[in-house]
Design a protein around this nucleic acid. Structure first.
Lengths: 240, 240
DNA sequence: TCTGATTTGTTCGTATGTATG
DNA sequence: ACATACATACGAACAAATCAG
């Protein structure tokens, strides 16, 4: 593929469109690593900067994912995590024909800080139980979540979760027939070293953080969850 | 404030909790610069690394903002950007008693690509008009947005926006009395150099990206917006 | 744990063509 | 005709992340 240097279209844009076409045609498959910047600049007969400009545009458009020190990769299809009143993790992903697993990473207790207290409607200092879980779709880690429950109310939640591997089922055993999503607060930040490792992603890529409060039929808060999604794999979709 | 070296609680965690308490008590106000790491390590009688560990945890929890070469600052209250069916940028922020400005950064035309075509319900290649705006609250840049409109339908949208500085008003002039939010898709990524500059944020902090589609009374798409929020200042809140 | 090779990220500087006033 | 601003393109050097041995 030769570039035209006097067509009025800039070189970097011609390169961008060429690579975009090769991805669309299937010559480069999702997850594939593209040739290095050096190889591409040799192939197109241009400076590395010119290639980089084209790649930057492709990344901005979501077509590729650039990882320092590793290479440039064709972007895999992202998962739409649908948020509604009845959001359930497993159902949400099963809908996409994916095999979902939710391993338990750990659990413990801690007194409620300001954020937890506000979310669960309890006083600061009241003891809570936390459960940390990983969400995997088709074996790939996509999220890490910390779930907080009031300890006085859900003393045995850890055992219930360990047996059912589902928050919905565990809460059902403890008398919560149904719950709905009250609010979801979404932010973005860089991952902790620990979260990056659990999500099998570079520390240099951000995580999408969703803080959610679920309430029961009596509108009492039952669960406060802080979920860190791998932002390369998941988008949060809100459709009222 | 003395630390206990044999309580079973690690020193850095004691420091973290101490500073967190001082922020909560108001001794350090939002926006204040904390003492330097050197001063803190002298005050607590520990190595600078120990202080750094505590500060890292505080940043992870969103309590402070660490800026290389400048210092550590108590984090100002983040803005809750409320998303609902009737989301309007200016109203949303005015609700928080903030003075809101929306300067126009630029505009132009481009043929619809796959994403724009899907969002606006037009064929790929149909010409669209884009408008780029900055959102500021109390003078601080918090978002950069690119708005796409079908050119055949909204030929004069740029003039209308330039005069009104409001998408709602501009659309009203072109016959769209009312519109509602159809869907919002949220993701996170690192900013482009350009966006980091416009948002006055370090390139190392992520942006929160919201892609939204607004539809008119006849459920026809009228606007497709891609907004990049400064993740240090804005959270997106869904309350169905 | 350390070292070197590979790959992307950043910052200099230089040059050219085009549009504007 | 001239000055200025801007986007494009090339070159060199070094920084930072990753990975294999």
């Amino acid at each position: 593929m030769d570039l035209s240097r006097d067509s009025g279209v800039s070189l970097w844009r011609q390169i961008q469109q060429t690579i975009e076409g090769e991805i669309a045609s299937g010559r480069f498959q999702p997850g594939d690593r593209l040739p290095t910047e050096q190889e591409l600049s040799a192939r197109f007969g241009v400076n590395r900067h010119t290639v980089r400009r084209a790649l930057a545009k492709l990344e901005e458009r979501g077509a590729v994912r650039i990882e320092q020190g590793r290479g440039t990769f064709v972007h895999e299809a992202v998962i739409d995590y649908l948020v509604s009143r009845h959001t359930r993790f497993t159902e949400n992903l099963a809908r996409l024909n994916r095999s979902v697993t939710r391993p338990l990473l750990g659990h413990g207790e801690m007194p409620a800080d300001a954020a937890i207290g506000r979310a669960l409607g309890i006083r600061q200092g009241v003891m809570t139980i936390w459960i940390e879980t990983k969400g995997e779709a088709d074996g790939r880690p996509i999220s890490v979540a910390t779930h907080y429950f009031s300890k006085p109310r859900f003393e045995t939640i850890v055992d219930a979760y360990a047996e059912t591997h589902s928050v919905t089922q565990a809460l059902k055993r403890l008398g919560v027939d149904d719950y709905v999503r009250k609010s979801t607060r979404v932010s973005a930040r860089m991952p902790t070293t620990e979260d990056a490792r659990r999500l099998a992603q570079p520390k240099t890529r951000p995580v999408l953080v969703a803080e959610s409060v679920n309430i029961d039929r009596d509108r009492r808060p039952v669960e406060y969850v802080v979920t860190r999604f791998a932002s390369d794999w998941v988008q949060i979709v809100f459709e009222p």
